[in-house]
Simulated scan of single mutants.
Amino acid sequence: MSRTFRILTRTCAGLLPLSLMSLPVLAATVATNQPAAVSAKPPVMLANNYEAGVVLANYWVSEKLDGVRAYWDGEHLMTRGGYPIQAPEWFIAHFPNQPMDGELWIDRGRFAEVSGIIRQEQPDDGLWMKVKFMAYDLPGFPGNFNRRDQALGEVIAMINQPWVQHVEQQRVNNESELATWLGNVEHRGGEGLMLKRGDSLYHAKRSDDMLKYKRHEDAEATVIGYLPGKGRLKGQLGALIVRNETGQEFRLGSGLSDAERMSPPPVGSVVTYRFDGKTSSGLPRFARFLRIRPDYTPE
Rank of each mutant, 00 (worst) to 15 (best):
W72E: 09
W72N: 04
D73A: 11
G74T: 12
H76P: 10
L77S: 00
M78H: 14
R80K: 15
P88K: 04
E89Q: 10
W90V: 03
I92D: 00
A93L: 04
A93G: 09
P96N: 07
P96W: 03
P96V: 03
N97G: 06
Q98N: 06
P99D: 04
L104C: 14
L104M: 13
L104A: 05
D107F: 07
D107V: 03
R108H: 05
S115F: 04
I117A: 02
I118E: 05
E121F: 12
Q122D: 12
P123A: 10
P123M: 05
D124G: 12
D124Q: 14
L127G: 07
W128G: 00
M129E: 14
M129Y: 09
D137T: 10
D137Q: 14
D137Y: 13
D137C: 11
L138D: 04
G140W: 05
N144W: 12
N146A: 13
Q150C: 08
L152W: 12
G153N: 06
V155R: 12
I156S: 10
M158N: 13
Q161G: 02
Q161W: 07
Q165A: 08
H166T: 08
V167F: 13
Q170M: 09
Q170Y: 09
V172T: 05
V172C: 06
V172D: 01
S176F: 12
L178S: 10
L178V: 09
W181G: 08
L182E: 01
N184H: 15
N184S: 11
N184L: 03
V185R: 00
H187T: 14
E191G: 00
L193N: 06
L193R: 03
L193K: 08
R197G: 04
G198N: 05
D199Q: 02
L201I: 10
Y202G: 09
K205D: 09
K205S: 13
S207E: 12
D208M: 05
L211D: 01
L211T: 01
L211A: 04
L211P: 00
K212I: 07
Y213H: 04
Y213N: 08
K214M: 03
K214F: 00
